[in-house]
């Protein structure tokens, strides 16, 4: 979102030469100006630096377009799941069940399509509906029963993965119809599989809603202060419930891409995405529009993380590097965004 940018340009136009002392708020604002724009650009700059370093270290392989296309496409599911998370986080809640919904959705598609021979489109609709049910149930406990979303979705996550184990009989099922595999991973535009563009479309929609609709602003206000939102006539319960439901449906869409990418689904499919998604969402909140969860920052964060991991693996690092990288990134990103937020809070005095 570029409103951070446009605000900054309006700042630079301020001419302080009116002869009188500016009020304190203004003084503070100007002195942090350069710091703030640097903050917004830090992650993209770091990304470019990482790319340059690996390109120098592994000139043949890393910089190849095939490698780039594979990086972009392989992380599409993670982008989608991270975006689902960003919606809920903006509304001030957690959703730990997104990854399990990916698994539920992918496995439903595999079972319905492979075992029952249902057309892919029907299987997809059922999978999305299942996502909706999970999200609505989350909302029921969070909004109506007023239980902390962290607890509700933690329980829901395990509950859903239990269901997945049950319906799959702990077996991996492959052979999902090419009707799904083709439009996800085979068809390409500019050398990059379609699934990357599906993820971009979701990011575009989230960005539009956040930036250009009243609903997006209400979501942000609910996330910052439920009481202020309520006293301003915002239907806080509906907004939170809606966020949880939509996030689950988007996660289920992530499951559709997951099934299409591998043509198969298994009992633990998708579960590995939870931590990277949190890492990306929080890391994304430090860039583009620092201090706010935002879709483009999240997309950049996903690819920053995966570029680092891919590069290290090309250098010969083992697969454990992935866990080390994501785990460290989550804690560092949250620490960093806390510092950003605290600085803003201090400034807000």
């Amino acid at each position: 979102m570029d409103d951070g940018g446009s605000r900054m340009t309006s700042d630079q136009k301020v001419t302080p030469s009116t002869g009188e002392d500016p009020p304190p708020a203004e003084r503070r604002r100007r002195s942090v100006l350069s710091g703030k724009s640097l903050e917004a650009l830090a992650l993209p700059i770091a990304w470019v630096v990482v790319i340059v370093i690996f390109s120098i270290l592994r000139p043949g392989t890393f910089l190849s377009s095939a490698n780039f296309a594979s990086i972009l496409a392989s992380q599409a599911v993670l982008v989608v799941v991270s975006l689902a998370l960003v919606i809920v986080l903006t509304a001030g809640d957690y959703d730990l069940s997104v990854a399990s919904v990916v698994g539920l959705s992918a496995n439903l598609i595999a079972i319905l399509n492979v075992n029952y021979g249902l057309p892919v489109l029907v299987a997809i609709l059922v999978a999305l509906l299942a996502g909706l049910v999970v999200g609505v149930l989350n909302g029921l406990f969070v909004v109506l029963v007023q239980i902390d979303s962290l607890i509700v979705t933690l329980g829901m996550s395990t509950f859903v993965s239990g269901i997945v184990l049950w319906i799959t009989g702990s077996n991996t099922l492959s052979g999902i119809s090419n009707d799904l595999v083709r439009p996800v991973i085979v068809w390409r535009f500019a050398g990059v599989p379609f699934e990357f563009y599906y993820a971009l479309v979701i990011a575009l929609v989230v960005w539009y809603v956040f930036r250009y609709t009243p609903l997006g602003r209400r979501l942000l206000v609910v996330g910052r202060s439920r009481e202020v939102a309520r006293l301003s006539g915002v239907r806080v319960g509906a907004v939170r419930w809606g966020a949880l439901a939509v996030s689950s449906v988007i996660a289920a869409f992530g499951g559709v891409l997951y099934a299409g990418t591998s043509g198969a689904a298994g009992p633990t499919s998708g579960l590995e995405l939870l931590l990277p998604a949190f890492a990306a969402a929080f890391l994304g909140a430090t860039t583009v529009n620092p201090g706010r969860f935002n879709p483009w920052g999240t997309v950049i964060a996903v690819y920053f993380l995966v570029t680092g991991i891919t590069g290290l693996q090309l250098l010969g690092a083992q697969s454990y590097v992935q866990n080390i990288f994501y785990g460290a990134a989550l804690v560092l990103a949250v620490s960093f965004s806390q510092i950003v937020r605290r600085r803003r809070a201090v400034r807000a005095g």
């Binding site: 206000v221 202060s225 006293l231």
Partner: peptide, 12 residues
């Protein structure tokens, strides 16, 4: 705490 959100711009 209940009237406004200090961390959002005056405009919002």
């Amino acid at each position: 705490n209940t009237g406004s959100i200090p961390t959002l711009p005056a405009s919002d």
